[in-house]
Design a protein around this nucleic acid. Structure first.
Lengths: 222, 222
DNA sequence: ATATACATGTCGAGG
DNA sequence: CCTCGACGTGTATAT
């Protein structure tokens, strides 16, 4: 990895075009061809390009090309403060826990937190328009589709479950079909659309869910 | 800005939890409190935290806390390869061209690229279910809703414009109402849904659009 | 401050 | 390879 600290000016042409007027930045050139340009603020690079790339240095100009997409990052070096290379070894991958998949597992263990008497029949049930998170039967035996959002549900989530319902309703044997969106929070537009479409919104407190399941199933403590 | 090159082990706790086993990384500590951790691959940081933060160094352990959200990034330094600080000055902001907003501006200048005789009546017209990109009249005077996507249109875009149409159709004076999605590309599901809903798909070549407008409106040449 | 939609989104799974 | 939905999404904009 090359770590270049320099005053520079940058242009990007690709999916859009950007320009960055002269300023001091830290530029990382990775062995896989990726490039990241960090300015003095923010956690994310201000300019970047994913590998593989061809890096071409021509005096004070560095051109980074990604031939597959025709993107070009042009860096004009005005003043180099530091320029070092490091042989880095890192075989580790980032491990994530607490994602939607795990939330699904928790719900499957305790569907009652959504609604009393709810029974999970199938998980990730495939339809022509994509998979349904949960295909259930409610206490009265009515087919009930459940779409789960880990964060705030927006209108798109409601539309998603409506599409699923339309698909499922094509089978007369399954009708009527209820549709639920389960999320910790709902955007007002999501609520409005849900009301118009006959979709039910269920606010799910994840903390309550965690406490509701058996301790040995808890992946994290609260 | 502090640039630390080190073998380290990292844990993040916040909206979820992540762990990163030991490996060599480049860590950037910015003056605004932001932290970015780059591993050997990819353009984006593998771990990060936006400012403001409190950074606390305790021997070989660095803790980065964001009190507002209760997030914590813990870095265990195993071997420091380099540790430098740089006084950087950068007053520049990234200038972007080619965002959806600018695409709208271009369309407003030359609505004919969508359809001959189309007239833009209103832009960003608000409805209960969100704003319509363009409210138009076609050559025959029929109310025409236009939803623009800068990249490939998916089913959600079609559903969006269908919602708008439902809203607009509540006013009998405006009926009938056409609905268009304009994008450089359409996902098959988007086309299928559009056909089912009576929504028209218009493929828009951005290059043709640029050439269609007056040269002085072009910010970059092609 | 809240809500909404855009993003060079990026990323990974599944057909 | 393409299509799709999640993401520690982040970020800007309008209300």
């Amino acid at each position: 990895m090359r770590v270049l600290v320099a005053r520079c000016e940058i242009a990007y042409e690709g999916r859009l075009q950007t320009r960055l007027a002269p300023g001091d930045r830290v530029l990382l050139f990775k062995d896989d061809g990726s490039v990241a340009v960090h300015n003095t603020r923010g956690a994310k690079p201000v300019n970047y390009m994913g590998g593989p790339t061809v890096v071409e240095e021509d005096g004070e100009i560095i051109r980074v090309r990604r031939s597959s997409s025709g993107e070009l990052l042009t860096i004009l070096l005005l003043d180099v403060h530091a320029d070092t290379r490091h042989a880095l070894e890192d075989g580790a991958a980032l491990e994530r826990e607490g994602r939607e998949l795990q939330l699904h597992a928790l719900i499957e263990q305790a569907p009652d937190v959504i609604e009393e008497g709810l029974l999970v029949v199938e998980r990730e049930r495939p339809t022509d328009v994509g998979p349904i998170d949960f295909f259930c039967r409610d206490a009265a035996g009515v087919a009930t589709l459940v779409e789960v959002k880990r964060v705030k549900a927006v209108a798109a989530a409601v539309e998603q479950v409506v599409r699923y319902r339309e698909q499922v309703e094509r089978d007369p044997a399954l009708r009527p079909v209820r549709a639920l969106v389960v999320a910790p929070e709902f955007a007002p537009q999501a609520r409005a659309l849900a009301a118009a479409r006959g979709v039910e919104c269920v606010v799910l407190d994840v903390g309550a869910l965690r406490r509701g399941v058996a301790p040995e199933l808890r992946l994290f403590d609260g």
